[in-house]
Design a protein around this nucleic acid. Structure first.
Length: 573
RNA sequence: CGGGGUGUAGCGCAGCUGGCUAGCGCGCAGCGUUUGGGACGCUGAGGUCGGAGGUUCAAAUCCUCUCACCCCGACCA
């Protein structure tokens, strides 16, 4: 391809809205363009990258036993009402009305429509197991798109669904997908880690995410360097410290004028935070609940939400709390009636805590659970803290950030039961099909690849997903020796099956080299009067500093073998 | 939805205490000189100043409403 013919220009300056590295670089490289908030166009270079990623994904899905189909984006809302997920998705669901007044949904995911199809074709256990997938557009009206391609409202996703007759079958399908996903990231030149994930309010027992470590990532990851335990913060657990044993002392009260927060109260009473109980009120599906936790911990709202089995959970406002006749800042579960109390198990880890007295400017001393109050539920609802002990081995837990580039779920029978997707087993009885769901965002993967592979000059594409392998850079092309050599090499490379982008513009060397760095193709080959003097060309790998001169004779063949050698070294095969 | 911010040429920005022909840099077109890490000179094209309404002799500039976009939070299979 001639650069002069390529649609999409590089830019020196970054559009103002771009904050995230991948967003800036992809915009500057002329690869993507924003059309609306969270909606992007892909220009030719990006399109080639996307195609390469899709090819790898498709290959791994096929190898794992998946069969590709294409199901519609446009889906009747009834399907979503049947599964009940129209409510779970709520505002995120893009809906529209056709000319007959019929409501349709732009699919945010495709469990329903796949299940509906499978239901008509699968009656017997002999039809199982089954794995179907597609690479298709998804639409989600995200509250806030962000980070360029990292969180968008329209995106391409590979989604595969597994259908099995029993748990063992599901386990096998799940393992196959976990392996396929790891192959995909390895082949794409990306270093993704598999972590335990929250499976959401609806659906399955087990779920994992694949996370690319990156500062710009939205997900917090908890990991243990000792034993390899890794989990999304939403799901992560840690061992909680136990406080020193002491006798239960009698309940008392203390005057704490104007002291409301844990900091103020502990400062005033000269106490450690861990000797207090923190009371936090939430609106859980319209109902006020009290969560209580030891003062040195914070509440993990995902865990709380799951424990309460609600779909909406928001922090209660002062007004909400006052309306219930409670004193914000001095609240505690003691003597509270008619409010659901859920406690973190840390409240059982010590004795004689300080807690609110439920009257202004007073706190209680020596509060003990269950002597002074009982919780309706006691379980782990705490956020893991940096350095907390690992739940597996006791090692120190670390917290880092990452981008979610894949998510796999054991869905179970939630959808199949609601949509009536049953099969007949060998003994003739009916069972709901057991499902799994496995998604990977293609565009996000591209952006994440940039987040992970760049330097101050631009992108450094892993060769397997690079839009072209070679940036052929003739300089002073007015020189016929240079232009002839470049043209010969270009043809030889193309004939050898090596995709090449030729910078045939009459720009100065500096401009060309800077664009080469920005676009990030793996290998730059420069031909100039200086190099052809010795019948040579200069080769420089994007991810290396130094360059080398090699004879033009037989260069295409050599380049081919270099590229092959590198790709086998990278993929570790 | 709450908080903060921005809309002026393809991109980045200035102008905004009301003042006349709306500027600068990059990019773009033409010509010439250059050229191993974002060259230079000359000439030129390109703008309903996000939109609507208002105040005024006069609005990019002041007022009201509105739309879009970005960031933080809420939210997020």
């Amino acid at each position: 391809m001639l650069l002069s013919q390529l649609f999409g220009k590089t830019q020196k300056e970054t559009p103002r809205e771009a904050d995230t590295i991948s967003h800036r670089l992809l915009l500057r490289a002329g690869m993507i363009e924003q059309v609306a908030s969270g909606v992007y166009s892909y220009l030719p270079l990006a399109q080639r990258i996307i195609r390469s990623i899709e090819a790898i994904v498709r290959d791994e899905m096929n190898k794992a036993g998946g069969q590709e189909v294409t199901l519609p984006v446009l889906q009747p809302i009834e399907l979503w009402q049947k599964s009940g997920r129209d409510r779970a998705f709520g505002e995120s669901l893009f809906t529209l009305t056709d000319r007959k007044g019929q409501s349709l949904v732009l699919g945010p995911t495709h469990e329903e429509v796949f299940t509906e199809m499978v239901k008509r074709h699968v009656q017997s256990y002999r039809d199982l197991p089954l794995m179907l997938y597609q690479i298709q557009s998804k639409f989600r009206d995200e509250p806030r798109p962000r980070g360029g391609l990292l969180r968008v409202r329209e995106f391409t996703m590979k989604d595969l669904y597994s259908f099995d007759q029993d748990e063992e079958g599901l386990d096998q399908s799940y393992q196959k997908m976990a392996r396929a996903y790891q192959n995909i990231y390895r082949r794409s030149g990306l270093n993704a880690v598999m972590v335990e994930a929250d499976s959401g309010a609806i659906g399955g027992k087990e779920s994992h995410e694949f996370i690319l470590p990156a500062e710009s990532g939205e997900d917090e990851i908890v990991s243990c360097t000792l034993c390899g335990y890794a989990a999304n913060m939403e799901k992560a657990a840690a061992v909680k410290s136990r406080l020193e044993e002491e006798e239960e002392k009698p309940l008392g009260e203390v005057f704490t004028p104007g002291k409301k927060t844990i900091e103020e109260v502990t400062g005033f009473l000269n106490l450690e935070k861990e000797k207090t109980l923190k009371s936090v009120f939430y609106n859980a599906d319209e109902r006020l609940v009290l969560a209580i936790i030891r003062g040195d911990y914070e509440i993990n709202e995902t865990k709380l939400k799951n424990a309460l089995k609600v779909s909406r959970l928001t922090l209660a406002s002062h007004e909400d709390i006052l309306r219930a006749g409670i004193v914000p800042g001095s609240a505690s579960p003691i003597g509270l009636k008619e409010i659901l109390v859920i406690a973190d198990d840390s409240v059982l880890s010590g004795r004689n805590f300080v807690a609110g007295a439920n009257r202004p400017d007073h706190h209680l001393l020596n509060v003990n659970c269950p002597r002074d109050f009982e919780a309706d539920l006691v379980l782990d609802i705490a956020r893991v803290r940096e350095g907390d002990p690992c739940p597996r081995c006791g090692g120190n837990l670390k917290i880092s950030r990452g981008i979610e580039v894949g998510h796999i779920f054991k869905l179970g029978t939630f959808i199949s039961e609601r949509l009536g997707a049953y099969f007949t087993d060998a003994s003739g009885s009916q069972h709901p099909i057991i499902m799994g769901s496995y998604g990977i965002g293609i565009g996000r993967l591209m952006a994440a690849a940039v987040e992970q592979n760049h330097d101050e000059n631009g992108i450094i594409w892993p060769a397997s997903i690079a839009p072209y392998q070679v940036y052929l850079c003739p300089i002073f092309a007015g020189n016929t020796g240079v232009s002839d050599a470049a043209e010969n090499l270009y043809h030889a490379l193309e004939e050898g099956g090596i995709s090449t982008l030729v910078d045939d513009r009459s720009e100065s060397p500096g401009v060309k080299f800077n664009d080469a760095d920005l676009l990030g193709l793996p290998l730059r080959i420069t031909i100039s009067p200086r190099t052809i003097e010795n019948r040579c060309a200069e080769l420089k790998w994007r991810d290396e500093k130094s360059s080398s001169l090699l004879p033009l004779d037989g260069l295409a063949e050599k380049v081919k073998s270099f590229l092959q050698a590198r790709s086998t070294a990278k993929s570790g095969t």
